[in-house]
């Protein structure tokens, strides 16, 4: 059993302590915007925020939560896709297949929470998500546009 504060709501779920947060979010809470990609924190498709910071939820056991953390998923980033990162992503039409984009958007928005004016070096170091369609060139432009919109 675990209690989570997720996107502003408190949810109690019946689940084993070692269940990765990713699967709790997808299968117990039912929010499927957060994706499974690798299960070993390599690809970043499962990125969410815990207290505003980006976390790869596929290797984060739900039992490690105290219940006080504010968890944010792509569904809770904004009510109406109005977060500056989402706006920038729409303006540049970034997603292709889109499967990695919730994780990409959460990684970028999480970075901007801590580093509101990232340099290219900051972006290189902090955005390490994989996108096989290859949106990476537009992602860099999108980050810069999101900074302008913030």
């Amino acid at each position: 059993m675990a209690t989570l504060k997720i996107n502003g709501e408190t949810v109690t779920v019946e689940v084993e302590d070692d269940t990765p947060l990713l699967w709790v979010i997808r299968e117990q809470v039912g929010l499927t915007g957060t994706k499974y990609g690798c299960g070993i924190a390599q690809c970043g498709t499962c990125t969410i925020h815990i207290n505003g910071s980006p976390v790869r939820s596929c290797v984060y056991p739900v039992g490690a939560l105290t219940g006080d953390e504010e968890i944010t998923t792509i569904e809770g980033l904004s009510e109406d896709a109005s977060h500056p990162v989402q706006q920038a992503w729409a303006e540049l039409d970034i997603p292709q297949c889109g499967y990695c984009q919730p994780g990409m958007i959460m990684a970028v928005s999480g970075m901007l929470n801590d580093t509101p004016n990232p340099t290219d070096e900051d972006i290189d170091a902090q955005i390490t998500n994989i996108c096989r369609c290859g949106t990476l060139a537009r992602v860099r432009k999108g980050i810069k546009l999101a900074v302008e919109k913030s």
Binding site: G33, T34, D93
Partner: peptide
């Protein structure tokens, strides 16, 4: 033209095969 399928890919609403949920479904 902007893609017709972008909006739902920005909010997590886009349903992929891995996200399908049906009544009584097992995995």
């Amino acid at each position: 033209k902007p893609r017709l399928d972008t909006a739902e890919k920005l909010t997590g609403k886009q349903v992929y095969g891995a996200d399908i949920q049906l009544d009584g479904m097992l995995s």
